[in-house]
Write a protein that binds this DNA or RNA. Structure first.
Lengths: 203, 203
DNA sequence: CTAGTTTTAGAACGATCGGTTTACTATATA
DNA sequence: TATATAGTAAACCGATCGTTCTAAAACTAG
């Protein structure tokens, strides 16, 4: 009963996601969203209810297709630092490979943290969730990597290592919007730090 | 000759700075700026030319009254880590002391990095300058602290320490917009890191 | 006191914002 | 064929945006 939707929802959401990623929520106008999605207002509103609804869908899509696949490599459970090295290598690759004019620089959620999240509680919750997911994944990989050595790492030291690596990840995404080379240097610093903590485990 | 200005320029700039700090450039409307400064549009435009002119004045004011005084403690030249400890203590104090509803959370320039700076070259240049100033000051303090020990720190290790501390500073300011306690934990991590590098120098 | 200059107050500008509504067409099922 | 849903395109809404303009108010120089 009734006509079927002719566009792929996830394609539209991805196009919107890239625009929000690049310009942020406020600076992305409905006219812009029409342009990048190829849809009219009517279709967008029919499918997503509002600009904000489209944004929320874009954030969810971002978490599922960008963040979680990246963090997944930290969950391999390898008994050395290879998962951590692979994680930072992945970030370095995607940061270094992007075209100079690519809108997809940095991290959508890092950008939200500095902007929307400060005054929008739902966004803040999403950003907090991301930070916790990142920290948990890093912690898991650090524990896995140290479980081969005789002495367990004290919890306090583990927490500091988690924070150091999460900090380098987030600030690299932040700096990527301004200076790509320095962002890569920050990620290399993280990688080198890991290698220093777990000698012999790097590639 | 002519009527005299009835308001103090720097007071107005500071009020505007706090608004931009809190809400960012785009989300701060002329009506908001009128409200926080107590001035009418005419006076604002007469004194600063445009919204952007006021913003630029606010950023300059921020650099001079917030950033540089903070970085100044890194330039004491003390032959131990006290300058670094004092720097992070200062950040911790100002982060922990702020009222929960204070608009002055995080760092105006960190917020700009994730927002305006990505598409506005003048802002990008200011943010880059801030990042370099921060790194240089941290490097200076690190060199001063290690100059008492017999062995010089290799340049590569020094660069990594600079990046680690700069990263913790910036990400703490980023996270402060979402989770103050975690921001403080990041700053404590930096402080502990310094203490570990230069044992015996902490308070 | 007047002339000239600058600061103010406030209205008004044109543009654009997100969002809604309308009218009409196309495609599906029952 | 009847009808329900999805599509487009357009006009339209009130609100808000940054900016400009006009004119009154407040000062100094002569």
């Amino acid at each position: 009963m009734g006509r079927l939707q002719t566009f792929d929802n996830s394609v539209v959401v991805q196009a919107a996601r890239d625009l929000f990623w690049d310009k942020g929520y406020d600076a992305s106008s409905l006219a812009d969203l029409e342009a990048v999605t190829g849809l009219g207002r009517s279709s967008l509103y029919h499918a997503f209810g509002s600009k904000r609804g489209l944004f929320d869908a874009a954030v969810t899509h971002y978490l599922e297709t960008v963040i979680r696949p990246r963090l997944a490599v930290l969950r391999t459970g390898a008994k050395d630092a290879s998962a951590l090295i692979a994680y930072f290598d992945g970030l370095i690759q995607s940061t270094a490979t992007l075209a100079d004019d690519s809108p997809r620089t940095g991290c959508l959620l890092v950008n939200c943290a500095a902007g929307l999240a400060a005054h929008d509680d739902p966004t803040r919750a999403v950003v907090e969730g991301y930070r916790i997911e990142l920290s948990d994944a890093l912690r898991f990989a650090l524990i896995s990597a140290s479980s081969s050595s005789a002495a367990d790492t004290p919890t306090a030291r583990l927490d500091e290592r988690v924070r150091t690596l999460a900090s380098l990840s987030m600030s690299a995404m932040l700096v990527a919007r301004v200076n790509r080379d320095e962002a890569i240097a920050l990620l290399n610093t993280a990688s080198n730090q890991v290698s220093a903590w777990f000698p012999g485990a790097s590639s």
